[in-house]
């Protein structure tokens, strides 16, 4: 084969139908307030972990809702469970419980 010096790029476009929505379905049953997130970012702005690591609970929630489980897996352990986000969330999302649920699910425990 010729040496091209270039290659086919991976498409950045996300195809909705390729998302894995099984995790979000299970988490939602355990913590229904998940659906109330409006991505305002209050959780991420006051977050202890976000100041020193690339962690954003806002992003974790959106990736979870988009069925991007790998992205969730890469981030979720950075949370320190301090509870600041649950204190500030304007929509009353039970963020701390949400993180615990995601961790449990990803570690193989089945919540529902």
């Amino acid at each position: 084969m010729p040496r091209w010096g270039y290659k086919i790029h991976e498409d950045r476009q996300v195809i909705w139908e390729e998302g894995d929505f099984s995790l979000v379905e299970r988490i939602r049953l355990a913590e229904p307030s998940l659906c109330l997130c409006i991505s305002c970012g209050t959780c991420a702005s006051g977050c202890t972990a976000a100041q020193f690591t690339d962690f954003s609970l806002r992003r974790v929630i959106i990736q979870l809702q988009r069925g991007r489980i790998e992205e969730v897996r890469q981030e979720i352990d950075r949370c320190m469970l301090c509870g600041k986000c649950i204190l500030t969330c304007p929509r009353g999302v039970n963020t701390r419980h949400l993180v615990l649920c995601i961790r449990k699910e990803l570690s193989g425990d089945v919540l529902y």
């Binding site: 091209w4 010096g5 270039y6 290659k7 086919i8 790029h9 498409d11």
Partner: peptide, 14 residues
Amino acid sequence: VRANRGYSLSCSRK
């Protein structure tokens, strides 16, 4: 630019 041609190729492929 040769190194960028993958972009062109990928668009056509799409």
